[in-house]
């Protein structure tokens, strides 16, 4: 039997490709911030995106979440073309993210932050909420229950009714991940989750990341500078430098690539 045309969303080893980015480019005026970046991330994988400051890593995240529209190139989640869609829509299709600078809703409680992330997963119309019909109370109870379950996973349940802005830094980072997980994503983008953390907090964060991978089977793309964290948990890496791919492949070989060492440390 003749070979079927190769499915572009299945990797060579037969695993499904969750995120595929083809030739992503974005240009700001005369500056090519991201130039021909290709990614293919398999289901369940923990993929790292590293590179010196200003290499375009966060810009890639902004492209993948719809904050910026790519000048050219496309990206697909589980085979579905999401290029050019609005951020809220991309989120509903299954890509959630955290931010380099924490951007929680500070004046909402910890539980409420997660409940915002839960969004429209429980049906209840504006009209029903306005006039406090029975379904409103059922939906609210359900939201609260789901939020508490997630907070348990992240060991944040005891802080549920604290204002998010009053949490210590490390816990705010965890809450951001919990809020992103609440949107029920297929792919989670973590933008420097360990930035500003002390070694204990970083260790705790690594444990949380491994735990949510086991528990939810989620695929993660992660930006990080902390090499201990990167070499500790990432399976595949792409290194960006001046907006272009410098190297890609499995973590150990990429980190030993002379070009990568040169970009980070210099000649």
């Amino acid at each position: 039997m003749a070979d079927l045309k190769k499915n572009p969303f299945v990797a060579e080893d037969g695993r499904e490709i969750v995120l595929k980015a083809d030739h992503l480019c974005i240009q700001f005026g005369g500056l090519k911030a991201v130039d021909d970046v290709n990614l293919s991330i398999r289901r369940g994988e923990l993929y790292g995106l590293i590179g010196p400051n200003g290499a375009g890593k966060t810009t890639v995240f902004n492209l993948l979440t719809g904050v910026y529209k790519p000048t050219s190139g496309r990206f697909f989640l589980c085979g579905k073309d999401l290029t050019g869609k609005a951020p809220a829509e991309i989120n509903r299709c299954g890509i959630a993210r955290t931010f380099q600078n924490i951007r929680l809703f500070g004046n909402l409680t910890v539980a409420e932050n997660v409940m915002v992330g839960l969004g429209n997963q429980i049906p209840c119309s504006l009209f029903e909420s306005m006039f406090r019909l029975p379904r409103h109370f059922k939906a609210e109870a359900e939201y609260r229950k789901k939020a508490m379950e997630l907070l348990e996973v992240f060991h944040l349940a005891e802080y549920a009714d604290h204002l998010a802005q009053n949490l210590p830094y490390g816990k705010q980072r965890k809450l951001e991940i919990a809020r992103a997980m609440a949107t029920n994503p297929t792919l989670l983008l973590l933008d420097e989750p360990a930035a500003g953390m002390n070694p204990n907090e970083t260790q705790e964060l690594m444990d949380v990341i491994s735990f949510i991978r086991q528990r939810f089977g989620i695929t993660i793309l992660l930006i990080e500078h902390d090499m201990r964290l990167v070499s500790g948990i990432c399976e595949q890496l792409t290194v960006l430098n001046f907006g272009t791919e410098l190297a890609k492949g499995d973590t150990a070989s990429v980190l030993n690539d002379p070009n990568v060492i040169k970009a980070y440390i210099g000649e």
Binding site: T65, V67, A86, P87, A88, N91, R92, A96, R97, F99, R103, L104, F105, G106, N107, L108, E112, M115, V116, G117, G119, N120, I122, C124, L126, S129, M130, H136, A139, E140, Y143, R179, A180, A182, T183
Partner: peptide, 22 residues
């Protein structure tokens, strides 16, 4: 309510709310 929380979220940080699917 869900809509009320989304309102507070938008007033706190519109872009973050957008990226959380609001």
């Amino acid at each position: 309510s869900k809509t009320g929380r989304a309102m507070v979220a938008v007033s706190e940080d519109r872009d973050a709310a957008l990226l959380m699917g609001v």
